[in-house]
Amino acid sequence: MQLEEEIRNIIEKESEDYFLGTADLSVSKNPMIHQYGSLIDEYPRAISFGITLPYINTCNLFKDYSKIYKNTNCKLRAISNQLTNLLENGGYKAFPVPKSKIVDITFTSLHKLAANQANLGRIDDNGLLITPEVGPGVNWGTVLTDACL
């Protein structure tokens, strides 16, 4: 229980409006997760966290989203690094999943798969993770670990 509180505290320092969940990927029946084979064998559990993207004016859509994603990616990277340090200092293995540069809309990232397995949303036909609260308006991060969560 203390580990979960420390994880939540780390995330709350970076963002007030966030999602957080954990999943045991080793027992998942999703075939897309099994493509990560040995990575999941070594780090069977995922800490999935997301930062809600603010609503933006559609006039400057591309420019605004570019800034927003840079900002949230920096926050997600900081959270990933802090969570990794917390887990490793506690004697666990941890692997911060890097953000992908792939822009193909059909690509489903490990971030979305982990968030889906943590029951934070469903993966839509277009590959976006849809949350009940804000739809697809979340930027996701993931740390894989062997810690019991």
Rank of each mutant, 00 (worst) to 15 (best):
A78Y: 11
G137A: 12
V134Y: 11
F95T: 01
S66K: 15
Y43N: 09
I105R: 11
A94W: 05
S15R: 07
Q82D: 15
K67D: 13
N57A: 06
E133I: 13
Y36V: 06
T22M: 11
F95Y: 14
V97A: 04
G127P: 12
C59N: 05
S100I: 04
Y55P: 01
K63T: 13
R122Y: 10
L53C: 04
I47K: 00
N60V: 14
A115F: 08
T84L: 07
D104P: 02
I40V: 13
S100M: 11
K29D: 08
L61F: 15
A118N: 09
L129Y: 03
K99S: 02
Y69K: 14
I79T: 07
T106R: 14
L86M: 12
G127R: 07
Y36G: 02
A115T: 07
L87G: 02
T106A: 10
S15F: 07
I123Q: 05
N81K: 14
K99R: 09
S66H: 15
V103H: 01
T22N: 10
D41G: 04
I68D: 05
M32E: 02
G127D: 06
P96S: 07
D41H: 10
L87C: 01
L87I: 03
A115K: 02
H111L: 15
L76W: 11
S100P: 06
S109I: 11
G50E: 00
E16H: 15
V97K: 01
N73T: 10
T52F: 14
I33Q: 00
G127Q: 09
G121Q: 03
G91K: 11
L113T: 07
N119A: 09
P136C: 02
Y43W: 06
I51T: 04
N30Y: 06
L76S: 00
V103R: 13
D41K: 13
I105V: 15
D41A: 12
Y43A: 03
P44H: 10
Y55C: 00
T108E: 06
P31F: 02
F49Y: 13
T108L: 12
T106N: 14
N89F: 05
T106L: 08
P54T: 05
N116L: 04
T84Y: 09
K75Q: 11
R45P: 02
L87W: 05
T58Q: 05
D124H: 09
L61T: 12
D124I: 07
G135T: 11
H111K: 09
S66D: 12
S100V: 14
A46E: 00
I47P: 00
G127M: 09
L110E: 10
A46F: 10
G121S: 00
Q35H: 01
Y69N: 12
T106V: 10
F19N: 12
G91H: 01
L39W: 02
S100D: 08
T131N: 11
N30Q: 01
S80K: 13
I102E: 02
L120N: 03
G137H: 12
C74V: 09
L86S: 08
I68L: 12
D24R: 12
E133S: 03
R77W: 15
L120M: 14
K93S: 06
T52C: 11
A115R: 01
T84E: 15
S38W: 03
T58I: 11
Y43G: 04
A114M: 13
L110Y: 10
C59M: 11
T52E: 08
T131S: 06
L61E: 04
T84D: 13
L39I: 13
D124V: 03
A23G: 07
K29L: 06
K75I: 00
T84H: 08
T58N: 04
T131I: 01
